[in-house]
Amino acid sequence: MPSSKRQWLWFLINIVILAGIFTLVQYMIATRMLNQYYQINLASMCINIILAVSLNLINGFTGQLSLGHAGFMAVGAYVAAVCTKSMDLSFIPAIIAGSLAAALAGLIIGVPTLRLRGDYLAIATLGFGEIIRVILQNIEEVGGPAGIVGIERLTTWPYLFLATVITIIVIQNLINSSYGRAIISVREDEVAAEMMGVNTTWYKVMAFMIGAGFAGLAGALFAHYFYIIKPDTFNFLKSFDILVMVVLGGLGSTTGAILAAIFITVLTAYLQAFPAIRMIIYAMILILVMIYRPQGLLGNKELTRKTFSRFWGGSA
């Protein structure tokens, strides 16, 4: 066991680093050193990190291939947007409502589908993701296929930063606990885990719910940054986008997911004018990573484990 003094030291150092990053970016935004273009990409980056880290909980740590993450993002985005636009709620309760609604959707979808294995589960989650989209298309109160327009831009850098940090900390602290080990044991060998007293069904549903909840958080932030949401934004290609990040970073590596999310955001920004090339590169990433490095860039290892794990509280 490391001495608690050292733990506190690392904790403080990390706080200082995070506060430094936050203040620096805030200063750059305030002094207009970061123009609109960079700010938009910064927001996308934070949202993508939340999406990738939360999907990684389901796909990477629990080992359940979900292809419906965009559906949960949609639930969060719509619920939060309705809260601020029609119900005059303030932003924070709206974000919370969006996340809880997405987690609830995760529960409702998870309970029946998580009995399925592997590729069947993948297709069922893809199906549910699409069903969510089709349902939204058919609800006139939220604009049908045109979606909701004129959502107030309430998502600012402090919200984005805080939401990203909270997502990472919650998921890392979960994973580095006895509950996290139970979740990972499901991925490793479901039958053996069950025999060792782990209620595998419950842990699958729990991971699915938490993952979905954070996807909802990402959706709520997304809706209040880009003014406009429509069902087509959350189709299964969006789910594949998130999958690419998780696969590239390494199934079961949070730092991998973060780095991949940053990389993919930058790539998307550079290839804005050539969407077809971007998708071809995505396709190549999926195929080549699976053939040559199926565990992803970081595998299930965490980057700079020694420094980070202290702060995230892992007992390494």
Binding site: L174, S178, R181, S185, E188, D189, G197, V198
Partner: peptide, 25 residues
């Protein structure tokens, strides 16, 4: 043999102790 193959020896045993975990999520 159905161990949790990719996990450490210690984690294999820790998972078996999970059912009596003393703290909440």
């Amino acid at each position: 043999i159905r161990l949790f193959k990719d996990l450490t020896v210690l984690d294999n045993v820790k998972i078996a102790l999970h059912k009596d975990v003393s703290y909440q999520l």
